[in-house]
């Protein structure tokens, strides 16, 4: 019995009391989290992001720098019928030796296809970026207020129902006929009501977040509406915004191509991919070099922008940051 007690006592000596320090237990040792740094880390982890980004940079550089060295004039050989629709080899023969200008042959009026594509790509990219910037900015601001304010909501729903029921193509067609078909009037036609559908989509997103508990807490602290929107709502919608951008940007390029194709696009003196495709479509079996290169470039730009946008949207979702 005494033996047993001794062992127990000895056992107790093996243990000793340690003071707990409540402050050290509060310490967080994980590295600091930064939202945007994590976004870029996840974005560049994907190989497709790097490849697509390199391709985009290449296309941007070529289409924005080269037109000043390669001025495109669709009517430069219009008086010389012998230059019409020549294959690359024949064109180089005709114009005397190898030249980048005739690398893709000539168009239906003796114009350089390569120069046309380069200048057209610039127009398409500019159009996409400008239209997306205008529509997204107006759409997000209006959509945020629309989703937050119940009074504004009832007014805007009526406006939306009226305008959204007018066929979009019809509206653009009429606008292009009325205000002309220059670059800026085309931008105007695409943005005058284009923001409305973005705003409507955004309204729904805002409504989902509006009544969450932390927004309620902000209300109890008397936070003004603009700060609730900028601090409580928009940061949660970053990935939604980027996803939207990923589908909006290429859609303007397709829109331009489509509208030019049906004949209400940019005017003939503005180089554009859509215009080139439309000009070549009737002869794409006989003169395939006039048709496929602009189609390929337009598709490539659309695909690159879409893939990049999707990768960025994935990366901007904080659930992928772990």
């Amino acid at each position: 019995m005494s033996n047993l007690q001794e062992t127990v006592q000895n056992r107790e000596e093996l243990f000793q009391f340690i003071d707990t320090d409540s402050i050290t237990s509060e310490k967080i040792i994980a590295p600091r989290y930064s939202y945007w740094r994590s976004v870029f880390r996840v974005f560049f982890r994907k190989k497709t992001s790097i490849v697509m980004l390199a391709l985009l940079v290449f296309i941007l550089l070529v289409s924005f720098i080269m037109p000043s060295f390669w001025p495109y004039d669709p009517f430069e050989n219009v008086t010389n019928a012998a230059t019409y629709s020549l294959t690359p080899a024949k064109a180089m023969d005709y114009f005397g030796g190898f030249s980048f200008k005739w690398l893709l042959g000539t168009g239906a009026m003796g114009n350089s296809i390569l120069y046309g594509i380069v200048s057209g790509a610039r127009t398409s990219l500019l159009l996409a970026v400008i239209c997306a910037a205008i529509n997204m900015t107006i759409g997000i601001i209006i959509g945020a207020i629309w989703g937050y304010s119940k009074k504004f909501d009832s007014v805007m729903l009526v406006v939306y129902n009226i305008i959204a029921n007018v066929p979009y193509i019809l509206l653009i067609t009429v606008l292009v006929y009325v205000i002309g078909s220059g670059f800026w009037s085309f931008v105007f036609a695409l943005t005058v009501t284009g923001w409305l559908s973005i705003a409507y989509f955004f309204r729904t997103q805002v409504m989902i977040i509006r009544d969450r508990e932390y927004s309620l807490a902000s209300r109890c602290l008397g936070t003004p509406v603009n700060r609730v929107i900028s601090k409580n709502i928009l940061p949660f919608l970053t990935s939604v915004i980027v996803t939207l951008l990923a589908s909006e940007l290429p859609s303007y390029i397709s829109m331009e191509v489509f509208l030019s194709y049906i004949g209400v696009g940019l005017s003939a003196n503005v180089p554009s991919l859509g215009r080139m495709i439309q000009n070549a479509q009737s002869a794409f079996l006989t003169y395939p070099w006039q048709f496929w290169p602009p189609v390929a470039v337009a598709s490539a730009i659309t695909i690159i922008l879409y893939v990049l946008g999707q990768n960025l949207a994935d990366a901007s979702d904080p659930r992928t940051h772990m």
């Binding site: 969450r212 902000s218 601090k231």
Partner: peptide
């Protein structure tokens, strides 16, 4: 608030 997870703004 009741739910400490829901009542703090996760992005602030």
């Amino acid at each position: 608030f009741q739910d400490p997870a829901a009542s703090l703004n996760e992005r602030a």
